[in-house]
Design a binder for these strands. Structure first.
Lengths: 113, 113
DNA sequence: GCAATACTCAAGCAAACGCTTGACTGTCGG
DNA sequence: CCGACAGTCAAGCGTTTGCTTGAGTATTGC
């Protein structure tokens, strides 16, 4: 239940990270392989500093992990956290759909009498 | 490609909707079946007006659909939009993981020579 | 050594968020 | 008809976000 609480905050951060189109573009780029900060910045229409700020959001959410070698910081996706968010959605959605199924069964049972 | 653009905005709104713990609590409640606004508000430690504002975020994101009958507004989940968000994540994650697989294959091929 | 590269840090600012309060509207039960 | 109920609307307010600019630091290539 402590775990529950921590994961709540984690989900906050992950979903917030995903809620921005620039950050999603960065993830999309990283899903094709690691990249430097400048590579991530290149297609985006904003200053490098802004990109770094987006990157920080992605990093504190745990979606992206980075490592600096020399003067270049290399970024890569950490899929575990992404999976957490994905399965949160899947859980709610499937719970709702199972409910609808049970409801449907009940209705058709009544019809057949 | 117009569709792409529209869906970008849609994903913005859905992920933003999911990024708040109170809103997720509301979704969690609704995944067990429809509820009125007051029912949604009951476990949350905030004014009814605040709950309605959260509800509006959920509604404009398309995650929740509501209908008012008499003086009570009934809320229910719309799973389609949720599925959209879910599969966006799944796509990036699986792309990354497939890449790792190919990389692994390449490495083991080299080893076996 | 020195300039270009690849960030990094901090200040500032407009807009968006999350919430409150207070006043109000429509609906239902008795 | 009237009071309680279930929202609704609008204004206000402190905080967070997304961005900019400008200055600074550590590598690297020549």
């Amino acid at each position: 239940m402590v775990k529950q609480m921590l994961e709540q905050h984690a989900l906050d951060r992950v979903f917030h990270a995903l809620s921005d189109p620039s950050r999603r573009a960065m993830i999309e780029r990283l899903s094709r392989g690691p990249a430097s900060v400048s590579e991530l910045a290149e297609p985006l229409d904003m200053s490098l500093a802004a990109v770094v700020q987006h990157l920080q959001v992605l990093e504190t959410s745990g979606v992206v992990r980075t490592e600096k070698v020399g003067r270049v910081r290399t970024c890569r996706i950490e899929p575990a956290v992404l999976t957490g968010a994905e399965s949160w959605i899947a859980k709610r959605r499937s719970q709702w759909e199972r409910r609808l199924d049970r409801l449907g069964e009940l209705l058709s049972e009544r019809k057949n009498r």
